[in-house]
């Protein structure tokens, strides 16, 4: 149950850390961490303007995407590793729920007949083609090393045993892969810049250009929640079994700080080279799995 409170309150709070870190890095004071929650509440109360071309898709998509992501997050271990939902092989449902959320948003983006939004959609969807297999390979790697179970169990058990070099190796590599996935999925630098003002260079932001008010609030929350899911997965991957909640929270904040620092230190990639980096999680997962299999065969 504590997870549910966590899911509902913290994503927006944590996403506020990133601009703060960015501001501090360039020597400014920055907006308060709570600003994102204030924006959310403000947007919730506003009316909406819909495009003249928009159909029923625009109306239902943000709600459906939010609910799908929310239900998907019920499979994910947060503070407590006892999740509300969970069964053996639930990660397949988890991945497909996230892709349903992405799918309806991709449709909603095409709904208003704008030239920008199609651009953003095509970019975002091209990432999906490589991220889904990457996630399945990561899960295969983890299952290979700890055995099958629900997603929460797998991630909780993987907690690195720092005595076994193979665990450290697999865990850290997969954490890197998941971190890149986090950057892509939550539309962060170097793939996408949420602070950009030029439509031509946007990816995620341009997809939601024509949304306003209530629906925009839902969309913002959804993307914050998605980032929260991935960062929580990374935390559980790196933390040893049985470490306290305090360490978990510290690590979680550290990940957000890292994302903020990355945004202030690294420039964006060229748009058409983005996919090459998106392939990295896929190859990391594949290599790790291959190494584990080879080890199991007795290669080392």
């Amino acid at each position: 149950m504590i997870n549910l409170v966590f899911i509902l309150v913290f994503p927006l709070l944590f996403i506020g850390i990133i601009p703060k870190v960015k501001a501090i890095m360039v020597g400014r004071k920055g907006k308060p961490v709570l600003q994102s929650i204030r924006d959310f509440v403000k947007l919730l109360r506003k009316d909406e303007i819909l495009s003249e071309h928009s159909t029923f898709i625009s109306k239902i998509a943000p709600s459906l995407a939010l609910v799908c992501t929310l239900v998907a997050s019920l499979f994910v271990p947060f503070v407590s590793t006892h999740t509300l939902l969970g069964f053996v092989g639930d990660f397949v449902l988890f991945v497909f729920l996230l892709s349903l959320a992405k799918g309806v948003m991709a449709l909603a983006a095409m709904d208003c007949g704008s030239s920008f939004q199609g651009m953003g959609t095509s970019r975002e969807l091209s990432f999906t083609a490589f991220l889904e297999p990457a996630f399945f390979l990561i899960m295969a790697t983890l299952i290979f090393s700890v055995g099958s179970g629900s997603m929460a169990q797998i991630f909780a058990q993987q907690g690195i045993l720092y005595l076994n070099i193979w665990d450290v190796f697999a865990g850290l590599f997969i954490a890197v892969a998941l971190f890149i996935m986090l950057l892509v999925e939550s539309a962060r630098v170097p793939f996408d810049d949420p602070a950009t003002h030029l439509e031509l260079t946007m990816i995620h932001e341009v997809m939601v250009l024509d949304f306003s008010g209530f629906n925009l609030a839902l969309i913002n929350y959804t993307s914050a929640l998605k980032m929260f899911i991935y960062s929580s997965l990374i935390c559980h991957l790196i933390l040893p079994v049985g470490s306290s909640i305090l360490w978990y929270l510290i690590l979680l904040i550290l990940i957000y700080v890292l994302v903020g620092m990355l945004e202030s230190l690294v420039a964006r990639f060229r748009m058409n080279r983005n996919l090459e980096l998106v392939l990295v999680p896929l190859s990391i997962a594949l290599l790790t799995l291959a190494a584990l299999i080879a080890k199991n065969m007795g290669a080392w």
């Binding site: 909406e48 819909l50 003249e52 095409m110 920008f116």
Partner: peptide
Amino acid sequence: KEKIGSTWACAYPKVNPRMQSSSLTYIQPL
């Protein structure tokens, strides 16, 4: 409350349907 407005086109007034993504541009990055 919902209001109906025109599609955002970066303040360009003469939006026409041919500016939308076609089936090929949709998968261009892929």
